[in-house]
Design a protein around this nucleic acid. Structure first.
Ligand code: MN
Ligand code: MN
Ligand code: MN
Ligand code: MN
Lengths: 218, 218
DNA sequence: AATAAAAATTAGGCAAGCCTAATTTTGCAA
DNA sequence: TTGCAAAATTAGGCTTGCCTAATTTTTATT
């Protein structure tokens, strides 16, 4: 069994690899974990010994297959708990991350299997992030950033790339929820503001920053 | 916020005080926690400094009011999670203790409040143990050991004093569940075997050991 | 190639929680 | 009252996961 600290490292490394490709730097990991580089060097030596990460001196490191599977397991737990918190307990989507950050470290395969079934095998968490199945497979999701779409395009809002409370609350405020239809009505060339047509023919104007944090499918 | 280790000490001390009255001995705590006495001495010094326990040299120690409230908070969480595991996820009553042992250490008042509401404010856990309310008050429960009842008595099975899987599975086997009516039909003087009348006029003969682990109300 | 900045590692420490071994204190029984 | 055993404490160590400060290595820039 891995410690919570190890599990947080695994998850962080996995996400850095996802975002930036292959090798991960000590400094990057230190930054996202809010930990000093010397500590990261320490921990990675231990995780190397356990064959969770593969070290390549001065090139960085990456997860081994064993490490990758462990990381996906944590992510699966995190996201299933988030679904539970929102769907069953009634938390808002901007409130669940911190609590799931703790719940993801509960060790019980039986528990997570039953939770998955209880939630009816959800495919995505409250932020639209895909939930890997029990074998560690993600459902292919071919969404694109709204900011990449030309005027006239339409699709369904299925995820965010900014998970901050500030952003999630902003979306609540303009009345945009996961699964809603969205149409790009107009893109202002000068400042790249997007005029969107939301559910119920509601038009809203959002900045490029916002358009660049919305994932659209279909 | 207290660490998991501290919380486990608090809970153990609370239960020892409940069972044996006032002062708790280092040795008793070491035994129930499965930890060496020297370690307990260490930890209690730290918890004393935090005003969680009051030390009386060579007389033992007991929880302060602050420690008592903290302990009750952990017990509340433990039992609510057990209800969740059984009622919502479908675990059996003999499977939930270990998992609740972990879940009780999740820190979020908001979470436990919502869980309580979601479970409809249960008054007892799957083993019949009372769940303190949000203010730390237990519902008075005036149950007695079945072994203390004379032949002819009847009541409702509302709790166990033996929480072992072996015992819980035995109860499943003879078909006795929490809330069932039970009548003491006969007590054999020679070996103190109890003949009980269960739901559906089923008669079973159980040992004194069993009769002494069943709590009866009403 | 020289040099400065950034990245990484090493060295030495610390707190939490545990351990073993040694010692002290306490409670009892002879 | 003495003497022993059980209980408790002290002393010294260990692992985990973090820290700061010092040093080394790598990378960029001229
Ligand atoms: Mn976490
Ligand atoms: Mn999420
Ligand atoms: Mn516990
Ligand atoms: Mn219980």
């Amino acid at each position: 069994m891995h410690s919570s600290a190890e599990e947080n490292y695994l998850k962080a490394i996995y996400k850095l690899q996802e975002a930036n490709g292959e090798m991960v730097a000590t400094s990057a990991l230190a930054q996202v974990l809010g930990i000093h580089m010397a500590s990261v060097t320490d921990m990675l030596k231990k995780m190397s010994a356990k064959k969770l990460v593969a070290y390549q001196k001065s090139k960085g490191f990456k997860l081994t297959e064993k490490g990758r599977l462990a990381a996906i397991g944590i992510i699966r737990k995190h996201r299933l708990w988030e679904v539970f918190l929102v769907d069953k307990l009634g938390f808002r989507w901007d409130e669940v991350h911190e609590i799931a950050e703790q719940l993801e470290h509960i060790h019980s395969q039986e528990l997570i299997d039953k939770l998955d079934a209880y939630l009816d095998f959800p495919k995505a968490d409250p932020h639209g992030d895909p939930i890997p199945d029990a074998k560690g497979n993600f459902a292919l999701n071919k969404s694109v950033l709204l900011a990449a779409l030309p005027p006239g395009s339409q699709g369904k809002f299925t995820g965010v790339t900014d998970h901050s409370s500030a952003f999630l609350n902003y979306l609540d405020k303009i009345g945009l929820s996961l699964g809603d239809p969205v149409k790009v009505k107009e893109v202002e060339e000068y400042d790249k503001n997007y005029t969107l047509m939301l559910k119920g023919k509601k038009a809203v104007v959002v900045s490029f920053k916002v358009a660049n944090s919305l994932l659209i499918s279909e």
